[in-house]
């Protein structure tokens, strides 16, 4: 951990308990996030990838204290996020923001775009009245929307435009960190590119740090410099994007990479089959969680969860890593 690290996550865990039944209640614990650690440098775009249900969104929300983590530590610019209260938490909220997946539910249908953008300014005492309006219109311009959007309601906009409004709202409090939770996966492919370009542009212009949660490897490869691959609540491999996707060491990373389509007709039809389903986080397999689907699984893998092996700028949790 060096001084340039803006966000530091250490052994973060979030478990959900579900109690079912009346006469004999059965409590199951879902380990949505089970000891996740990573660090993000200032100005860096860090990707968090994995299948649906692997806990990447839960981890992102716990980092922002939108849900209280059960264990672990989150440090933002040296401040303990997990232990912040009252005004300290309020100040932290200003510095880290979130962009949501679904642009249709991320805006209050009854509030105008202007209201959505000026409300955070008022709450944090940044601007009011005329000044707030000017700032909101500047924000709209920054995300590529006309000033006339100010007085309109969300239902008058397309998904891509709404996502721009959501980004503008996140930017309104001038955060340093933006957690983007699948920011483009609900959009049409043509719009995806525009929004990604906008985010990239904002990152460069404002020096933003990103935690980019996605299941789309292509998007992460393009947007992020470093990436962590999650499987069933744990990080199985991390490192620079080019290395992780170029020469994956964990069999799961390899499987994910090989399953993501390559836009080249010459290698058409070589998509490997992925064996099996992601197991339930309520009842993960013993040993390495991935062993039932792993082509290289040994007896050791079936009994002992592999230790994290750090190597340079990343690491892998596998008994028999490739390369």
């Amino acid at each position: 951990m060096t001084a340039s690290e803006l966000l530091e996550v250490c052994d973060l865990a979030k478990h959900f308990t579900v109690t079912k039944g009346f006469t004999r209640p059965v409590t199951t614990t879902v380990r949505a996030v089970d000891g996740v650690s990573f660090a993000v440098a200032r100005g860096e775009a860090f990707g968090l990838v994995g299948e649906s249900g692997c806990g990447k969104s839960t981890a992102a929300r716990a980092v922002l204290r939108l849900i209280p983590p059960d264990a672990g530590l989150v440090r933002f610019a040296g401040i303990d996020v997990t232990d912040a209260h009252g005004s300290a938490l309020q100040r932290l909220r200003r510095r880290m923001q979130i962009v949501f997946q679904d642009p249709y539910s991320s805006l209050n249908p009854r509030r105008t775009i202007g209201q959505a953008l000026t409300e955070p300014l008022a709450v944090h005492g940044l601007a009011r009245g005329r000044a707030a309006r000017d700032r909101a219109i500047a924000l709209l311009e920054e995300v590529g929307l006309p000033p006339s959007a100010y007085d309109r309601h969300p239902h008058e906009f397309s998904g891509g435009q709404r996502q721009r409004v959501g980004i503008a709202r996140a930017l309104s409090v001038e955060p340093e960190l933006i957690v983007a939770d699948e920011p483009v996966s609900a959009l049409d492919v043509s719009v995806q590119a525009q929004v990604l370009l906008l985010l990239k542009d904002l990152q460069a212009r404002r020096g933003l740090t990103f935690v980019f949660v996605s299941h789309d490897l292509g998007v992460v490869r393009w947007f992020c410099s470093r990436v962590a691959v999650m499987y069933l609540g744990r990080i199985v491999e991390s490192g620079p994007v080019a290395r992780v996707f170029g020469a994956p060491r964990h069999p799961y990373t390899r499987m994910l990479r090989d399953a993501s389509p390559i836009p080249d007709p010459a290698i058409r039809g070589q998509m490997p089959r992925i064996l099996g389903e992601i197991p339930s986080a309520a009842n993960p397999p013993a040993g390495c969680h991935f062993h039932p689907r792993c082509p290289r699984a040994s007896d050791l893998c079936r009994t002992v969860y592999p230790e994290w092996r750090a190597d340079g700028d990343g690491g892998v949790a596998c008994h028999q890593p490739e390369n």
């Binding site: 929300r61 979130i98 949501f100 009854r110």
Partner: peptide
């Protein structure tokens, strides 16, 4: 819905979320 979570991420108080974002709906 995400706009309620967005309100929390933006540091809105529960009272504000209830009165400004839930009640009108």
């Amino acid at each position: 819905r995400a706009f309620i979570e967005a309100g929390r991420a933006l540091g809105f108080s529960h009272l504000r979320i209830l009165l400004v974002h839930v009640l009108p709906n």
